[in-house]
Design a protein around this nucleic acid. Sequence first.
DNA 1: GTGGATTTTCTGCTATACAGAACAGCATGC
DNA 2: GCATGCTGTTCTGTATAGCAGAAAATCCAC
Lengths: 252, 252
Amino acid sequence: MLESLPPYAIGSVDKALLILLMIRDRGEVRVTDVSDELGVARSTAHRLLLTLAHRGFVAQDRVSRAYRAGRVVVEIGLTAVGGLDIRRKARRHMEWLAAELHETVNLLVLEGNGTRFIDGAEGDRPLRVSSRTGTLLPAHSTSGGKVLLAELSDEEVLALFPGGLTRVTDRTITEPDALSAELRSVRDLGYGVNHEESTPGLDAVAVCVRDHLGRALAALAVSVPHQRMTQGSLHMMLPLLRSAAEAISQDL
Amino acid sequence: MLESLPPYAIGSVDKALLILLMIRDRGEVRVTDVSDELGVARSTAHRLLLTLAHRGFVAQDRVSRAYRAGRVVVEIGLTAVGGLDIRRKARRHMEWLAAELHETVNLLVLEGNGTRFIDGAEGDRPLRVSSRTGTLLPAHSTSGGKVLLAELSDEEVLALFPGGLTRVTDRTITEPDALSAELRSVRDLGYGVNHEESTPGLDAVAVCVRDHLGRALAALAVSVPHQRMTQGSLHMMLPLLRSAAEAISQDL
DNA sequence: GTGGATTTTCTGCTATACAGAACAGCATGC
DNA sequence: GCATGCTGTTCTGTATAGCAGAAAATCCAC
């Protein structure tokens, strides 16, 4: 495994990648393992692991303090295997849902501490939310972001926001405790809502789209003008939203 | 996505990981994309990608010259999700096969340019091959290694052996052209054999264990004393070997 | 509470990562 | 076929980022 690098390759990057290969081969590594096997100082080993952890490529076990593969690596792998297909496979279900509800439907994925709108199907009414495909919004301010964040531990969520929770509107959650409570509620209810937290006048409700292993790959959201989001309309939308998300999962 | 790094994090490593996140989000990237979005020179972008490519984390499309996720990322992801389970799930099928054939059965995975024996079920005869679980042997000298290498392109195989093909016994394949021809034969036949190439007096035959997407996760091999490997016994073993590999795949 | 092992934090130093320039490759238009 | 523009790749001088070593913090077993 100790080979000469090609010219111009970056040694520190290579070391980080070798750590990921070690994790592939044995499931977990310790700082001292990395230090011994890469032939670097313990402090260097730690800095490499810390950087990998910062981007979610590794996660440290609280009890054993060993590092293992993090969520991001799983996502990349799954994306490479089938993720290019998620938009394609979700498309017809999103169009169905938009037609049923006459509201705009969005497909979102987590990107760092933001949610990227990766596809959309608009409702057919004059007043409607635009699809916003391509937009990156802070995850904690969107319904899709909330359901995806709810899949993480509280610590993982906090680590995504080292600078605190950005205020987007007057209604945005900016207290870490309030976000924890909101995500707890999301976990209990199985859906997340956005009450004008990302855009004034815009509400939304979202559920997760899961793969066969039950992992959340994306979020499916219905975005509505605020005045059209009532308890009644929410109750009407939820079964259809869940049905569409389940149908997408079956297609994956 | 532009956030401050934690203290002591390594900037160049972080940039490489951001590239992988870009690939997760959009499937592929170009040198200029990376340069523009990370705010680095094109030469730096290229060096980052070249390092990622060297370890198999990205692969460049020959025609479009864009870079996409490489094989290694898929392996790490799959290992993290389910790799710990493959041994458990394979266990009873391996025991069944060992009992049917009265020979030793091995489960192997690729590790760098070697094959790691990750589990084994021994035959019940006095003269038998031991399970060798935990052993790492050069991939080109084992039947399981051959079927796993046959899943790669010739270039990828050669890149795994920059120092050439190690000779393990007098029978080991050491010429790249001979290995290419052998792997072509493996692809045609759907199985690989080892005629005393890893250990004198030891023959073996192997097939791939695939996931639902058809990707090879591991190899399942039957290891036999050389004098017990005849055309007749090979013909008798193959259907049962294939059956067991298929049964493991179904359980994944 | 103590001692040892491991992980994490800090800092001065130097060599590696960087940007910019040149080169190479490719596609398109005239 | 040649010129142009764009993109990817190779090269080199430099300064700052990555490094090792030491100190501090944490953890666990006795």
